[in-house]
Design a binder for these strands. Sequence first.
DNA 1: TAGACGTGGGC
DNA 2: TGCCCAAGTCT
Length: 364
Amino acid sequence: MKQSKDIVKDFQIEQFQHDLISWFETEQRILPWRQDQDPYKVWVSEIMLQQTRVDTVIPYFNNFIEKFPTIVDLAYAPEDDVLKAWEGLGYYSRARNLQAAVREVHEQYGGKVPHTPDEISKLKGVGPYTTGAILSIAYGVPQPAVDGNVMRVLSRILSIWDDIAKPKTRKVFEEVVHEIISKDSPSFFNQGLMELGAIVCTPTSPSCLLCPVREHCRAFEQGVQQELPVKSKKKPPRAVQIAAAVVTDEQGNFLIHKRPNKGLLANLWEFPNVEVDLTIGTEQTQLTSFVEADYDTEVVLDPPFTVIQHVFSHIVWNINVYKGVLTGNIANRDDLKLVSVKEIEEYAFPVSHQKILKEYHKIT
DNA sequence: TAGACGTGGGC
DNA sequence: TGCCCAAGTCT
């Protein structure tokens, strides 16, 4: 592996900084989290932007800040409210970690976001990228903030051929950024690198002719910008068969269940469902047995009225959706509720189960 | 280290 | 349609 000193050899650092920052000053997009440098807002935006597009984040960010304008507001909010504000954004542990970290800041740091790498990176959900982003953007500290954009842009500019899918590769880029980051304007340097990756130096067809740092780009010089970055393929998701039931009582209330506080879609609400194992028995039998045993009640299920496929990054759910009627009382537990069609809107559901409800409404 | 962890959009 | 992606972190 090459040393960062060698990679940066003969690179016109100061000219590059100037060209990048000047471009960012005039061409940056107007975004809600760029209206001020409130560390809390920078923090919230950076968490939301993890693996998520800017256009997707904008409405969620505005709504989230309206509901939880300050660290104190978020710290004292019910977790269900926070998850409801996150509903549809994905990677829900981000929301729960953010609230836990905000509580930590409120209790341990008097409500002020700390401004050292050690303290910030200890907060839940704050890794090396977000640490650098908060430090540079909110506090002007020259700390690398290496995300996918930065690795793509710098792999091209500096002709770095390490596989960016490997965790250790991020360290290579962090070392490089340490060498070339502007000490005068680390915020605009880091954001400029990311902005460039988002709107000019894009993955499949980079707009090199519009690029403000084209003169510095080794990949462009050699015509290999399409070959970079090197990124190995991910494994395809595994298929899982699910049987779910929309169960209602005599009043038309829906039976819903809160998922466990760890793992996939933690603490979100859902319709009763089981992972099917066809070697045990029929799907309908397994679903009925599960609901009756686990919820201590009785149900009668009709055959499936729809099939839903939902693709996660690592799993594919194939869901057969049954319609059912509750014929007994349900166990008195916090993770089990009977709610009206109106009340159900107050609960945070994963998109897969929103699809189930939508299909149910079509047939009723 | 590699897998878990979501979703919607682009081509 | 299917695949890849988008401002990563945790275990």
